[in-house]
Design a protein around this nucleic acid. Sequence first.
DNA 1: TAGTGTGAATTTCTTCACAGCG
DNA 2: CGCTGTGAAGAAATTCACACTA
Lengths: 209, 209
Amino acid sequence: MARLPVYLRSLVELVEEKTATVSSERLAEMAGVNAAKVRKDLSYLGSYGTRGVGYEVEYLLFQMRRELGLTHDWPVVIMGAGNLGQALANYAGFTERGFPVASLIDADPDKVGRSFHGVEVHHVDDLPALARDRKIAIGIIATPASAAQAVADQLLAAGIRSILNFAPAVITVPPEASLRKVDLALELQILSFYQQHPPTGDQPEPETR
Amino acid sequence: MARLPVYLRSLVELVEEKTATVSSERLAEMAGVNAAKVRKDLSYLGSYGTRGVGYEVEYLLFQMRRELGLTHDWPVVIMGAGNLGQALANYAGFTERGFPVASLIDADPDKVGRSFHGVEVHHVDDLPALARDRKIAIGIIATPASAAQAVADQLLAAGIRSILNFAPAVITVPPEASLRKVDLALELQILSFYQQHPPTGDQPEPETR
DNA sequence: TAGTGTGAATTTCTTCACAGCG
DNA sequence: CGCTGTGAAGAAATTCACACTA
């Protein structure tokens, strides 16, 4: 479920403000969804709530971290040390949330060996060794669209089966791999669409729309 | 429909390779979806296909641009001239696809007046005037999570009703506004989840998963 | 009593399958 | 004949509503 991380964020906030217990209604409000949905989603993790009381924040947080596989850090590698790659390497949010950037990868010999924001650039040829030695399980594609599929294949060949694609291109991966995409301009195009059309509706669901 | 921009991208590719006509099947393959879905989606724009032949690429592209409101540029403003804001201001993909960055906005007097990659930083107080004068209809939030809601309210107050939120926080807007969100670390957390769980499945749909 | 957990109802999205047209 | 456009079937996701229990 793609909503679990949103709940996770809410739970972290609740812990910070030292709230011990939370109802599905409160969580729903924080996550911007319907309360029934929260209960359905959480029941999928198991019965961690207490009727008449709610959910124990700390405990639920622990269970959710476990479910999401966030009990340890996941080093990531960023493919492409161009504009976007450098920016992502510098983005503090990754490290903060358990995804340290182990390396930038580029094919350009001029870039290999340099560092951006403390992250060293390695050559594509070193990817398999890097992946193995530094236990990298996630690759981020920040290359031009034209290179995206080839780069994805390189990641897969290096044994990296989780891919986050920032390149504005459709790429395909075998069924045993996971793929997510983020297309920045595409999001703006969707907003442009709603600008054009009656954006009169109910509360826009934070997820889609 | 959030898939239209994906078709748009495919159509642009087809034009570049001088393909005159395309079938729903071919388009589906390029966009990574099912052919029936392509036809349903396109029929929503009107009957622009020719039975037995397919769709005329140029014409469909034109209609789609019109439908998406991409017949002219949409200047955007980026709220927050920190790490992420600067990186986004520098991202060529925005301008290339019709969303030039008109201005960075920050509350910090030290940043106001400076330029990053040719984009000037203005003060929040100037936002309403800027929005009016430069016809800015879309705002991008690249502030820390704690400021996100306040910044969204400032955008709305300045008459900007389309918001793309990069801050890892749930924000709410009135029904007449449009909101999309991109949470970079959240995407990685979803990948972490699938790493933990049997990612054995069919062709992972490019959209979700 | 307040709030979970969950079957059942509803809505939304996807896919099928085929009539109909160029 | 090939491929679109679309009703109808099917699947998935969401929401309702309430029995149940701490």
